[in-house]
Every structure is written in C-alpha cells, then in structure tokens.
C-alpha cells in the first residue's frame, strides 16, 4: 500500500529542482566513450555516423543521464545515492555542439513500505526539443 502526500519535511509537490546546463562537444563524447568503454562508432566515428539515420555522431544517452545525476546530487546526494531511481526514455539525439538543459519538478510524494520518495518529472531539452523524458526519484526517508 502506498499513500500520496503533498509534502514531507521541507519538500513539497511542485517544488523545482536545480537546473543544470552543459554544452556537449565531440571531444566530450570521445572522453565519455573512453570513460565508459562504449566505443560504438555511432558516437565517435563521423564517417560511420554519416550513413546512419542521424547523419552525424550523437552523444551517448547515458552521458545525458550523468547530467540528470548532477541535478539530483545538487538537490540531495544521499537521497539519490541511497534509494534513488530513474525511469527514462531517450527521445531525441544530442549532437556535438548542443547545449543540454536539465530540470525537473516534484510531481508526487509517495509513502510506501520501502520509504518516502519524491517523484519528479524530468525536463531535458536542447533548445525547444525534449531529448529525454521520464521520471527521477529521491528517497526522502523511512516511512
């Protein structure tokens, strides 16, 4: 059984999370490929990427996830690292040169057997295009 709350401690529904912005370059994508071990040519080989549906290289989706993690860390790293959750879909590619903006808003606070969680709707955009959709959760404490 879970119960929906309007607030828990100093966290309330409709609260805004910190905003994070980063410009993704091909150099950064190459560095991420080295750091993650994911050398898919779609990310790092412009000649290969030219003939794909994207027409050029794209950033790793999980690189964008790292930016979401930064937002959650800034908000409350313990509630993120100990019991945090993500559920997201990669909707549009991020190309070299794009500036990615990550923000989110608390849409519900759920009290369940596992604890109390702030569920937040993500807004990850490049310009006016949504590139990543879904939710992210922070554990607020024991139920």
């Amino acid at each position: 059984m879970s119960e929906l709350l309007q607030s828990w401690g100093d966290i309330s529904v409709n609260d805004k999370l910190p905003t994070i912005k980063h410009t993704v370059t091909q150099d950064a994508i190459n560095q991420y490929a080295d750091a993650s071990g994911d050398h898919n040519p779609l990310h790092i080989d412009p000649e290969f990427a030219k003939d794909t549906i994207f027409g050029r290289t794209i950033a790793h989706g999980l690189m964008t996830l790292a930016f979401v993690s930064q937002m959650m860390t800034e908000w409350d790293w313990k509630g993120w690292g100990y019991g945090g959750e993500t559920d997201m879909a990669f909707l549009s590619p991020v190309f070299p040169g794009n500036e990615v903006e990550v923000s989110a808003e608390v849409t519900s606070i759920e009290k369940c057997d596992e604890g109390v969680f702030a569920r937040c709707k993500l807004n990850v955009i490049v310009g006016d295009k949504t590139i990543l959709g879904g939710t992210v959760s922070r554990r607020l404490g024991d139920a």
Partner: peptide, 16 residues
Amino acid sequence: PPGGVHAKQKFHFHKP
C-alpha cells in the same frame, strides 16, 4: 550489430 542505441533506462540505486 553496429548502429544499435539505448532507448530506455531504469536504475535503482541501492547504495553508492
């Protein structure tokens, strides 16, 4: 095969 991409991702972080 080359060209595969990540479409969705869920994570549950139990502890760091």
